[in-house]
Amino acid sequence: MIRHRDLRVRWLGYATARVDDGETVVYTDPGRYGVVTGDWEPPAGVDTRHPDGPAYDARDGDVVLVTHDHHYDPDGVRRVAAPDATLVVYEGVDADRAGRPPSPETLAAEEGYDLRRIGEDDRIEAAGVPVRSLPAYNDPDGPQANPDGSVMHPKGSGVGYRFVVGDAPTPVFWPGDSDALPHHDGLDVSLFLANISGSVCMDRHEAAALAERLDPDLVCPIHYDTQSFLAADARAFAADVAGRGVPVVLDEGWA
């Protein structure tokens, strides 16, 4: 766990981060690959420091943010969301296409959540938390594109989130599965939850350059080493970011 201003931040694994200010709890993209069920196993051939914890079932989240199909996990949502949680889900998330039913609508109806579907560039308030969505995608001419221009995350497939918590207040940015894109520049960000895994999103070099442009008060990488295709050298990333004069911290333990 790390502390930033009046926030406590904990990377639970994969894309799941818990952010709280002592009153309000926000989760990003909970679940998948066994990271909150205690079933995650280190991928072969990866010298991983990915959090490896027991089954997690806190059900204390006031706000739960879901960026796209790949990060939608109904069981993960149930394990983190409070009974009266606000579930913010990108409008393009399709549970049938993802192969993980039920739909967000059915899940919210069954569990009593307040569901808010959100577009690619929207601003809403969820349980008192200002939330802004931003397009998240791989540029077909960018570094993650295949030779034919195809990409894992085409435009329109997902979003990232900037949300504000704490008395300070403290803006937090989670870009989702995305390249570093021009509309990221100029964001007012205090805590940057950097996606550094490459292959399906920005790699550690692109994320470090984005951190320098954003100039946040703190950078903490997440979404790496979960699977072999997400392997990243977090320590090299931290050294790169620190060398650019930006504070950075790793949160690689469960406690």
Rank of each mutant, 00 (worst) to 15 (best):
T24M: 07
T170S: 10
V200H: 11
Q227I: 06
A17N: 11
L193Y: 00
A194C: 13
Y90W: 14
W174C: 11
P154E: 04
P135N: 01
F237A: 12
G158M: 11
R79G: 06
R97P: 09
A81Q: 07
R162I: 09
V165P: 11
D75I: 05
V241L: 05
Q144N: 15
V249D: 06
V172N: 03
P102A: 10
A17G: 05
Y72N: 05
P54C: 07
E206K: 02
F173V: 05
A98M: 11
P51C: 06
R59N: 05
L87R: 09
G128D: 01
V80L: 01
S228E: 14
E105G: 10
E206I: 00
Y14M: 07
R132S: 15
A168F: 09
T37A: 12
L181E: 08
A238C: 07
R49W: 13
H184A: 08
L12V: 05
P154S: 09
P42A: 09
G31P: 03
V77E: 02
R123P: 02
Y56N: 04
I118G: 08
A211C: 10
N146R: 15
R213G: 05
V151Q: 07
G61Y: 01
T170V: 15
T67G: 09
E212A: 15
A58H: 09
C220L: 14
D122M: 07
G13W: 10
G92D: 06
A127F: 07
G99P: 10
L87P: 15
T67E: 10
P43I: 12
G38H: 03
R5K: 09
Y33G: 04
D215T: 14
A242G: 06
T37G: 13
R3H: 13
G198N: 04
V172C: 06
L193R: 02
P54E: 14
D29Y: 04
R123E: 15
V189D: 00
D141G: 15
V88M: 11
L107S: 10
E120I: 04
C220K: 06
V129E: 01
R79W: 03
E23W: 07
D57L: 10
Y161E: 02
R8P: 03
G158A: 15
A58I: 07
G142T: 00
D139F: 05
A81E: 02
A95S: 15
A242I: 05
V246A: 11
P102C: 13
